[in-house]
């Protein structure tokens, strides 16, 4: 029985987290700063394709197809609709599609990174690049806490529904709504935080103390390939333009 082999949903995480980090930076830089002409366009296409391929590699076929679909629509809009419309319509299309396209690609890659990296792989990677406990511990706790937060939030929403506390209902305006929503969440946070701290202490967690990791991360050929692409993107953005 292999440990860690199917940590997330049954597929093996293909890339080293450090590669993903580099690619995340590279793709973001490239997508944000390029236009639509010539080599710039080619670069954007490369960036757009990478998450697609990666989604397939981790067997998230549905996500890959949805992403490809949205990309195709975007390309259509940018390539065809924009030059052929004008005035207010043009403006509206451009504003929504433009902001969207810049964010989409970077976001897609970030989503891939989140889906395919376990928190322990991430923590191990950070340790390898010598990031101190003062950053890694809060970061790990953040990831661990997000799902709990959403569960608590859901429970609170159910309770609100049951007590008839609704937006537009008779129990108070927008400000009161916010209060009803946020205060129990804050209290839950305090409580869970306390319990979590106590439990972690009994498990020997201590900031600054060295510890071992059973999670192994290593670079494969695919990692080196992507690193090359990533460095290429960055080089292009900073030097060749």
């Amino acid at each position: 029985m292999e440990l860690f082999s199917h940590a997330k949903g049954g597929y093996k995480s293909v890339l080293d987290p450090r590669t993903k980090l580099l690619m995340l930076i590279a793709i973001n830089v490239a997508v944000m700063g390029t236009g639509f002409q010539g080599t710039d366009y080619f670069v954007r296409v490369v960036c757009a394709v990478i998450p697609f391929v990666l989604f397939l590699l981790i067997r998230k076929v549905r996500t890959a197809l949805i992403y490809a679909g949205v990309c195709a629509v975007m390309l259509f809009v940018e390539g065809v609709l924009i030059p052929s419309t004008s005035g207010i319509l043009n403006l509206v299309i451009v504003i929504t599609s433009g902001a969207f396209s810049r964010i989409l690609i970077g976001f897609a890659f970030a989503y891939y990174a989140m889906c395919s990296t376990t928190v322990s792989e991430f923590a191990t990677a950070m340790k390898r690049v010598h990031i101190p406990d003062q950053i890694t511990i809060p970061l790990s706790v953040m990831f661990r806490f997000f799902p709990t937060l959403s569960e608590e939030s859901r429970s609170i929403r159910n309770a609100m529904r049951m007590r008839g506390i609704r937006l537009g209902g008779k129990k108070g305006g927008l400000l009161a709504q916010m209060e009803y929503r946020i205060v129990p969440l804050m209290m839950s946070t305090l409580r869970i935080g306390d319990e979590l701290s106590a439990a972690s202490l009994t498990k020997g967690l201590e900031a600054g103390k060295p510890r071992t990791h059973i999670c192994q991360i290593h670079m494969t050929a695919l990692d080196w390939l992507l690193i090359l692409i990533g460095l290429g993107l960055l080089g292009y953005m900073f030097f060749l333009r």
Binding site: L3, F4, A7, K8, T118, V119, S120, S140, V141, F143, R144, P147, T148, R191, I192, E195, L196, A199, S200, K203, G204, L205, E206, K209, R211, T212, H213, I214, C215
Partner: peptide, 18 residues
């Protein structure tokens, strides 16, 4: 609220790692 980690294997290794 007693788990620090997000997956079971890491949690089982946690005390020993520390």
């Amino acid at each position: 609220s007693q788990f620090f980690n997000v997956d079971t294997t890491s949690e089982m290794a946690f005390v020993s790692e520390n």
